[in-house]
Nucleic acid binder design. Structure first.
Lengths: 175, 175
DNA sequence: ACCTGAACACCGTTCAAGT
DNA sequence: ACCTGAACACCGTTCAAGT
């Protein structure tokens, strides 16, 4: 006798993201997600292989949202960079998790395209991949260090970020 | 009746680092560290407040080693950058953990000095802090993405790294 | 077909009892 | 003064039994 579904994969992933932002990865337990969704922990295993798979799904959803933001920016170097940083500030735990997991992140493909387009406009086709990697690495590292509290020598972080984009633009335009 | 010490804080931290590189953070359990040190898990609590404090100590020791490497480099922009990257390749889990923990990282002070010196030589006193942050953010992000397998569009990563340092030098020299 | 309680393995942590 | 086994709380996961 079929029972009506009491939840769904999408609802579980959303609950996982909410719990993650609330309390960090260590609070992202099967029990806390189940409770938020109104079900018992063992029921989650009907939709999700295990906790790691749930975490992967949370990462994938986060990357999707991040990509939407990049695509919605003005696509300039400055626009991409600040959209990236703003997203990380909004969802610090989710952002952090993207680079804390080791897996085939084909979900990053869409984001790569947006950044590559802008990079191509700055340095041309030949060096666009390297230029995109420069910009992405810098933005990723900046935000991660910011979130980790690793910038401890004072100074204004907004200034440092603006200085960084400007220097990158100069460095790339002189290729 | 005093018992002779069967271990020490330093030995525990070293064991923690070894276990970490072997199996990642999730394998860094009190039990695995205790076993490696030849003691039962509860005994660790005589030297270490809890697992988080052990992790903090592992991070601090890792930052110390990293700083030694930076100081032992030729102190050029290129030398610092490749020393940084080489260290991350040697101790990927330890490196990763540095920016995965949120805490007062005064241990980063020594490393900051080395990078600031080099940055000052490139852009002068006024913008040295921002320049140091640009370089550190880029190197950190590059290596983290590399370790996470986030560079998935082919191309040579050594090339991309060299391209990055060169572009940063140009961007900074034209301040 | 989905949901649950019970059960098991494992981990962090405390503590009384050993030496 | 350090070390240990026993115990407790908590978590991930499986599974037989419910609907």
């Amino acid at each position: 006798m079929p029972t009506p579904d009491r939840t769904s994969l999408a609802e579980i992933v959303d609950a996982g993201r909410a719990v993650l932002e609330d309390g960090g990865l260590s609070r992202l337990t099967m029990q806390s997600v189940a409770e938020r969704v109104g079900v018992r922990a063992p029921s989650l295993y009907k939709r999700v292989r295990d906790r790691d798979a749930l975490i992967d799904a949370v990462v994938a959803a986060t990357i999707d949202d991040l990509t939407d933001r990049l695509e919605a920016s003005d696509r300039s170097l400055e626009g991409l960079a600040s959209a990236y940083r703003a997203f990380a500030h909004e969802r610090p735990e989710g952002f952090r998790l993207i680079f804390a997991t080791r897996q085939p992140q084909t979900a990053l493909d869409r984001a790569s395209v947006a950044i590559l387009d802008t990079a191509r406009g700055l340095v041309g086709e030949d060096r666009s991949l390297e230029a995109a990697r420069l910009v992405t690495a810098w933005a990723t590292g900046f935000v991660q260090m910011e979130l980790a509290g690793a910038f401890q020598l004072g100074g204004d972080l907004d200034d440092a970020f603006a200085f960084g984009v400007a220097a990158l633009r100069r460095g790339l335009e002189s290729v």
